[in-house]
Design a protein around this nucleic acid. Sequence first.
DNA 1: CGTTGAGTTGACCATCGTCAACAGGAGTGG
DNA 2: CCACTCCTGTTGACGATGGTCAACTCAACG
Lengths: 244, 244
Amino acid sequence: MTRHIAIQELTGAKAHCAHARADCGECDVRLRSVCGALDECEIGELENLARPAAFAAKETLFLEGADAECVFNIVSGVVRLYRVLEDGRRQIIGFPMSGDFIGLDLASKRSFCADAVTTVTACRFPRKEFSEFLTRKPNLLQALHARSSLELKRSRDHLLALGLCSADEKIAWFLTTLRGRASDTSGADIRLPMSRQDIADYLGLTIETVSRTLQRFARENIVEIQPQGVRIVDFNKMGSLAAT
Amino acid sequence: MTRHIAIQELTGAKAHCAHARADCGECDVRLRSVCGALDECEIGELENLARPAAFAAKETLFLEGADAECVFNIVSGVVRLYRVLEDGRRQIIGFPMSGDFIGLDLASKRSFCADAVTTVTACRFPRKEFSEFLTRKPNLLQALHARSSLELKRSRDHLLALGLCSADEKIAWFLTTLRGRASDTSGADIRLPMSRQDIADYLGLTIETVSRTLQRFARENIVEIQPQGVRIVDFNKMGSLAAT
DNA sequence: CGTTGAGTTGACCATCGTCAACAGGAGTGG
DNA sequence: CCACTCCTGTTGACGATGGTCAACTCAACG
């Protein structure tokens, strides 16, 4: 049960360029994220607060308990959010990706850790300034609240999977959910940028169970395992397993 | 694994009196809930929207999928929120009580069921009017967003318990959390108004495991089982088990 | 006094975790 | 270029935790 995690320290040489200027006009996630609530004029004001940021795979964004100096809007890539108990057990609570917002609660302390699964590009805002900006823009606050509600809903779906589902159902639910979040929501291919260990820690399983279950799904012609992910073969079977 | 739940139908004779007037001045949860964000003048406006509501134990507030005609602020008593799969498995996602708000997302459809565990008194607002009122009161929206963040945090704590903890740890965590939410947060007595089945469905366990674990805790002098709850005897042991 | 529903307890067993070994690819250094 | 390590993922054997099924107690209630 107990597994120790060496929490990677923040590296000195970060890949993000803190002084570049953001260009919201060119941003392709703008309409799918909270910024979509602002008009052209307001977006200009927000642009003054925004700083593009980039992280290499495995790089740490922040650790639990740290001061939250900024909030993030993810532009591309996948992040993992997690908490670790003293004895090393880790629970991944989410995989925010393109369009998602990190730091919804605007709290001064981080309540979880975050690091990059893949290369990540993001839009970073100083928390206090962003928070102050919010008080003057009720529509942005409303958009943030809507995001928060979405996040709460996702968290509850996740809860349902952990509380009610068998290993098979958890895996099927995970794959189905990931497919639903991808840009192309109709394809059979699902990219899995995270490791088996990440999937296990997300679903409350062990790496062995994840591996075994996926291999068995492949043997039973439910999925096909591919280099960077899986392809769903039997949609019916997947659907009936994942039904939450 | 599969257990069927007969979802109780809405009874015709409800205990709430829909036409009474709310008296926010006398309300003892006002300062601990979202209404606390409003000044005397604004509270008067909100009062016009508010209708006191009361529910008997086991009465249904609403079912998943129903139109959300109103939102609730719980004044007293305990509610259970849950979702049920087609095969009858039930996951309880929360036990809102005094000061908590139901319907944070302001969505038009319910995404879970709710019914009263004990006798419940609440303050009910028509959703659309409340939502419209919010657009004119950014401080109230801010308070609602803060509540949402709290709820998201609770949901993630719950997630951690389900994903990482053994049965013993789940029970200990549950008792500790309940104690932390009570009005008197320092006492050793914990009231458990919900049934063993409710606790089981909240923690992803079976009723037998909940019962066995509590009895064993009693034998090991960690708790003492009382008519309407438990009393913590060994705080150290509880603390080390519950450590999330 | 019988019925019902909640809670408890025991016996048994399945799922999934644990421990261990192994395979294959990427990166490193001789 | 090969040998080596390291890391991720896979597979097998075994066992413990917690689920399943069943019987029983007890209090509430008509």
